[in-house]
Design a protein around this nucleic acid. Structure first.
Lengths: 202, 202
DNA sequence: GACCGCTTGGCAGCGACTGCCAAGTCGCCC
DNA sequence: GGGCGACTTGGCAGTCGCTGCCAAGCGGTC
């Protein structure tokens, strides 16, 4: 499996790439549909593969695991997050920087409905939630040097404090999205996030 | 499998209970030893069962899953946490209350070495970390009503803010324990925790 | 000593996931 | 356009965590 090549227009170059992209979408859509209809744990990978028209073996070549079938590409997630935070102005505070990162990540969802469904599944399925939290923690470690550089302060304890601030930011995102889902998708997640940060720092 | 009965002195009543307790310890010790020696993912449940002298089937009757073999009984965890937080004076602030809960949970470890080894395994093994984070999130939901009652404030948004504060507290515990492990177990976790909270609220 | 209840172990089976191998398809170059 | 090489696909077998089921064994009690 090769890295996907694209032309300057963003359209896939070869037939292979086009089929690959099509298959990927088909699998992703099928998975989200089945998860919504019958629940995550009640849906087997074999069923998704069957209904998407690929073999189970191929499905596992496209995605690293069942969890990846929801939420899609976490690499893109990571890229957007680190890029956004990296390109913030130097004089911006840590909290502003992290807020920008959160906003950028939230903007990745294609539609409000899709975002709601994904968050709903995530917060109601223990195994999914665990997986998400784990990935999240890896993002935190990625962000550590970036944030640490902005915090300055005394050397020895800089890492702890940076970790704490990043962890808090994500915890606020969790609290916000959870509440957003509980409220049926009313309002904006980022507003809830702001309220969370205010409550913590208040 | 029945609930374990104990006499007034705390000693197990029947022979069955005593053997059960012995088997439980044997399994737990074997698991921790093997995890330390060869890693969590590299250790199979079958191996633990074999070396502990029980069948695999019995092991799964004692513990709900492989994850429970590290960190032991999360019910006790939950009990201590909610009890400690519940019995804090009414005029104590949310942050003090949560700090007391964290301290009580940290005090549950039998020894410094055991705590260090557990945290080390937890923070270096992705699957374990995921499981821990998931349990943690369930604790957060348990604590939600207790904390929310203490925060008061305007009704509509009380839940979000309570979730954010609890999440932040746990995030600080994570940051503290991670840094503690990275430092080889130097100093006290609770001090690092305090520094984290200060950094966030500062 | 006999009966009842709880525990134990083995077996079969499911679901996620991986390595391996053979067959098929695409792209490119002669 | 044919053929070669690169890449993808599917199937099979196997591992590991985990569960349900059933028969056998042991502890406690009358």
């Amino acid at each position: 499996m090769k890295q996907e090549a694209r032309t300057a227009t963003g359209a896939p170059a070869t037939l292979w790439d086009r089929t690959r992209q099509l298959a990927s979408r088909e699998i992703l859509d099928t998975a989200l549909r089945l998860f919504s209809e019958q629940g995550y744990d009640e849906t087997t990978v074999a069923q998704i593969a069957r209904e998407a028209g690929v073999s189970q073996r191929t499905l596992f070549r496209y995605f690293h695991g069942k969890e990846d079938l929801l939420g899609g590409d976490q690499d893109r997630f990571r890229q957007v997050l680190t890029a956004t935070i990296g390109e913030q102005p130097d004089d911006a505070g840590v909290w502003e920087v992290l807020r920008a990162g959160v906003a950028a990540v939230l903007a990745l969802h294609e539609s409000r409905e899709q975002a709601l469904e994904r968050f709903r599944l995530m917060h109601t399925t223990a195994s999914l939630r665990a997986g998400w939290l784990e990935k999240r923690l890896r993002f935190q470690e990625d962000l550590l040097p970036l944030v640490q550089a902005r915090m300055g302060g005394s050397g020895g304890t800089a890492a702890v404090r940076a970790r704490a601030v990043i962890g808090t930011s994500f915890a606020c995102l969790d609290a916000a999205s959870m509440t957003w889902v509980a409220g049926g998708g009313e309002g904006e997640i980022i507003d809830l996030y702001d309220e969370c940060v205010a409550a913590v720092r208040g």
